[in-house]
C-alpha cells in the first residue's frame, strides 16, 4: 500500500490503524518500501514508557530519511497526562539533554540503586529531521492542542483551522467520484492542508488510489482546476507494460 501511495504521488501513508503496539514496526516496513512519501505513525499514548517510544521513533526517522510524522493518540489519558507524555516524547527527541520531572514522569528516574546514573540523559540517535511533526488525535486531543501548540487531526470541517500552516484532516471516501470530489473540495475550503483518506471497505487499492491521484488531488491542487486535465483519455501505455 505504501509503495502504491508513493507511485500515485500521495503525500503520505498512515500506520497503526490495527494494533497500535505494532504501529512503529509497520511504519518501518512502509518506510523501506518508499523513498519520498511521509509515514504517519499513530502512537497510542500511555502504552509504554515514553523514552522507549522516543527511541523507536528516532530509529524510524533515520530509517526513512526524516519522513516520520507522529499522530499522537491521547487514548485513555487525561488532558494533563497526555500533555505531559507528549512533552517527554518531544523533549527526548530534541537536541538538548533530557531532564523531565512531573507528577507522571521523572526522567531520569534518579532511583537509589542506579548509583552511577547522571541527572540528565541524551536520547540517541537524534531524528534525521530537525523536528518530528506531531499531530493529535483521540478523546483529549482538542484540550491538549492548546497547551502543546499542536495541530489536531480534524475529523469534521469545523475543527479545521485556516490559521495553521499545516492543518491535517481525515475523511472517508465512498468510491463515488462526485461525492468524493465534494468531500475533498469541502475540506480544502475548511482549511485542511493534508487530508488522509479512508478507503471504502473492500476497495481495490490500485483503483482507489488512481481515483485519488487522477481526480481528487488535482481538484484541490489549484483554484478552478480545469477538469479536462483529469477526464481526458489516459495516454497509451508502452506496448506490453500492462498500464492503462
Amino acid at each position: 500500500m505504501a509503495r502504491l501511495a508513493e507511485a500515485h504521488g500521495l503525500f503520505g501513508v498512515m500506520t497503526g490503524a490495527g494494533d497500535p503496539r505494532t504501529a512503529i514496526t509497520a511504519a518501518v516496513y512502509a518506510s523501506t518500501a518508499t523513498d519520498f512519501t511521509r509515514v504517519i505513525v499513530r502512537v497510542l499514548l500511555g502504552q509504554e514508557q515514553p523514552v522507549t517510544i522516543a527511541e523507536e521513533l528516532a530509529v524510524l526517522d533515520n530509517v526513512n530519511n526524516g519522513r516520520t510524522v507522529v499522530l499522537a493518540d491521547t487514548g485513555d489519558l487525561s488532558e494533563a497526562d497526555a500533555v505531559d507524555e507528549i512533552a517527554v516524547l518531544r523533549e527526548a527527541l530534541g537536541n538538548r539533554p533530557l531532564q523531565h520531572e512531573s507528577p507522571r514522569w521523572k526522567v531520569p528516574a534518579g532511583l537509589p540503586a542506579n548509583v552511577t546514573a547522571p541527572k540528565a540523559i541524551a536520547v540517541t540517535p537524534k531524528p534525521a529531521q530537525l523536528e518530528i511533526p506531531f499531530w493529535l488525535t483521540g478523546g483529549a486531543a482538542g484540550e491538549v492542542a492548546k497547551p502543546s501548540h499542536l495541530a489536531v487531526l480534524a475529523r469534521d470541517a469545523k475543527a479545521a483551522s485556516v490559521e495553521r500552516s499545516v492543518q491535517p484532516a481525515i475523511a472517508a471516501i465512498t468510491g463515488t467520484l462526485e461525492e468524493d470530489r465534494e468531500t475533498v473540495i469541502a475540506w480544502a475550503a475548511a482549511g485542511a492542508t493534508h487530508l488522509l483518506l479512508e478507503l471504502p471497505e473492500g476497495a481495490q487499492h490500485e483503483a482507489a488510489l488512481a481515483m485519488i491521484s487522477r481526480y481528487l488531488a488535482p481538484e484541490v491542487a489549484m483554484p478552478n482546476f480545469p477538469r479536462v486535465m483529469s477526464t481526458s483519455k489516459v495516454p497509451l501505455a508502452w506496448p506490453g507494460d500492462g498500464r492503462g
Binding site: Q49, V51, T52, P108, A109, L111, A113, N114
Partner: peptide, 14 residues
C-alpha cells in the same frame, strides 16, 4: 549500565 535503567525508570535491583 545504571544510566540505561534509570532513563527507563527501572531500578537496577529489579
Amino acid at each position: 549500565r545504571d544510566v540505561e535503567f534509570d532513563g527507563h525508570g527501572v531500578s537496577r535491583k529489579q
